[in-house]
């Protein structure tokens, strides 16, 4: 889809730039804040000292915050990409004639599974897979699949059967119908599912710091264990900013100008 479809863009390069800026300004500002805090936390030492006046160490220095942010994003990205591929792929497979037998079960599991608390899923992954990054990625993947599968199924089944017939009447093959009709029509609903999934994954990954992954949850856990509120604030601020940045990016991606 090209940009001018989604943006109320007047002609000319300069104004196009302004429109683009207006469209993306919110996530960009959050991103700038996130990066500024990640790399410049040491500038805030005086402020953090206000929170923990009696502690010698107020800056979390076991690992650099940038590394932790990178690892957090990496784990969430790997799990989410796998969840998107498997979830959308699986939902497409069970809505084709060959896989239709599996549709009721997959739909039921996707809806029942969402009742499971993410922490519990994470906790169950550890006995099965051990400590470290792998169980977290698997738990995030499994849990992240559910909203994606559910929304993809909803999006695909929400398409008017008349549209199908019209497409077939035009002589489109099954593959063409899927790529050119079904997926574009279902895209907004699928994206909403991906957004939910990624948001949950960012939060669950942080809890993963308790099972031996190193990410932005680390300063929080270490702050709780050592009674150092300054550590907790650093980790919490960065995780919060990361979540808001990603969420507002999705919001802009999904934004349609026809709301007015």
């Amino acid at each position: 889809m090209n940009e001018s479809d989604t943006l109320p863009v007047p002609r000319g390069h300069a104004s196009r730039g302004i429109a683009l800026w207006r469209h993306w300004s919110v996530p960009l500002i959050w991103l700038a804040l996130l990066l500024a805090l990640t790399f410049g936390m040491s500038q805030l030492e005086a402020l953090l000292r206000l929170i923990e006046p009696d502690t010698r160490q107020v800056l979390y220095q076991r690992t650099s915050l940038a590394t932790l942010l990178g690892q957090h994003v990496f784990v969430v990205a790997v799990a989410s990409v796998l969840a998107i591929v498997l979830g959308v792929g699986g939902a497409i497979a069970v809505t084709r004639p060959a896989g239709r037998d599996f549709l009721p079960l997959v739909a039921q599991v996707a809806s029942i599974g969402q009742t499971f608390p993410p922490v519990a899923v994470l906790a169950l992954a550890v006995p099965a897979l051990g400590f470290g990054t792998l169980p977290i990625i698997v738990a995030l993947l499994l849990y992240g699949l559910l909203p994606i599968v559910r929304n993809t199924l909803a999006g695909l089944s929400g398409i008017d059967p008349g549209v199908h017939e019209a497409a077939r009447g035009m002589g489109m093959t099954r593959g063409q119908i899927l790529r050119q009709v079904e997926l574009p029509l279902a895209a907004p609903v699928i994206f909403a599912g991906i957004r939910t999934s990624v948001t949950i994954n960012i939060a669950t990954a942080a809890i993963g710091a308790t099972v031996g992954a190193s990410n932005l949850g680390d300063p929080i856990i270490s702050g709780i264990v050592n009674g150092n509120t300054a550590y907790i604030v650093q980790g919490a601020l960065l995780i919060g900013l990361l979540a808001i940045t990603v969420d507002s990016t999705f919001e802009r991606l999904l934004w349609r100008p026809m709301t007015g």
């Binding site: 929170i51 948001t199 960012i202 939060a203 942080a206 809890i207 949850g217 929080i220 702050g223 509120t229 907790i232 604030v233 980790g235 919490a236 601020l237 995780i239 919060g240 979540a243 808001i244 969420d247």
Partner: peptide, 20 residues
């Protein structure tokens, strides 16, 4: 919406300092 977006561990952490 913003509150809902903030991960649970972070929100608990952010509430900790002001409540203390």
């Amino acid at each position: 919406n913003v509150v809902q977006t903030i991960p649970s561990l972070a929100l608990f952490g952010l509430l900790l300092a002001p409540l203390a």
